[in-house]
Amino acid sequence: MIKAVIFDLDGTLLNTLNALSFCISKTMKHFGLKEIDIEHTRYFVGEGAKKFVDRALIYNGDTDLKLANEAYKVYDEIFAVDCLKDVKPYEGITKLLDSLKAMGIKSVVLSNKSQLGVEKNINEIFGAGVFDLIYGERAGIPKKPDPTSLNMIIEELGLSKPEILYVGDTATDMQTALRAGVTSIGVLWGFRDEEELRENKADYIINNPSEILEIIKER
Rank of each mutant, 00 (worst) to 15 (best):
I78V: 14
A68Y: 12
G48M: 10
V87W: 07
K50Q: 14
V109T: 08
V108M: 14
I93L: 05
N123H: 13
D146L: 01
A139E: 13
I134Q: 02
G92D: 03
Y75N: 01
K85L: 04
V45L: 03
S99P: 04
I141E: 10
K143H: 05
S149H: 04
K95R: 13
N112T: 10
V130E: 03
G140A: 11
A80Q: 10
G48D: 06
K144N: 02
S114Y: 10
F44D: 00
P145Y: 04
Q115D: 12
G140P: 05
L97G: 06
Y75K: 08
K144F: 13
G117M: 03
N123M: 14
L84F: 08
L116R: 09
I105N: 04
D98T: 06
I105E: 08
V74N: 05
S99A: 15
M103G: 12
L57T: 07
I105D: 02
N60V: 04
S107D: 12
K101R: 15
K95W: 10
N69L: 15
N69R: 11
N60Q: 11
I58R: 00
F52A: 09
R138A: 07
E119Q: 04
E70K: 14
L84A: 07
M152R: 01
L100T: 12
N121Q: 11
E91N: 12
N151K: 08
K106H: 15
N123V: 08
K106R: 14
D146T: 00
L96G: 04
R42C: 01
V130H: 05
K66P: 11
N151M: 08
S111L: 13
A49G: 07
G117P: 03
G127T: 08
V118K: 01
A71C: 12
E91K: 03
L65H: 14
K50S: 15
Y75E: 15
T41W: 00
R138V: 05
N121R: 01
G136Q: 00
L84N: 06
P89E: 13
A139Y: 04
F79G: 01
K50I: 11
S111V: 05
N112S: 15
F44N: 00
Y72T: 07
V53R: 00
N121G: 03
K66M: 11
G92Y: 05
G127P: 06
L67A: 08
G140M: 09
K101S: 15
L110H: 02
E47P: 01
K113V: 00
Y72V: 14
L100W: 13
E124T: 13
S114H: 06
L65M: 10
A128K: 14
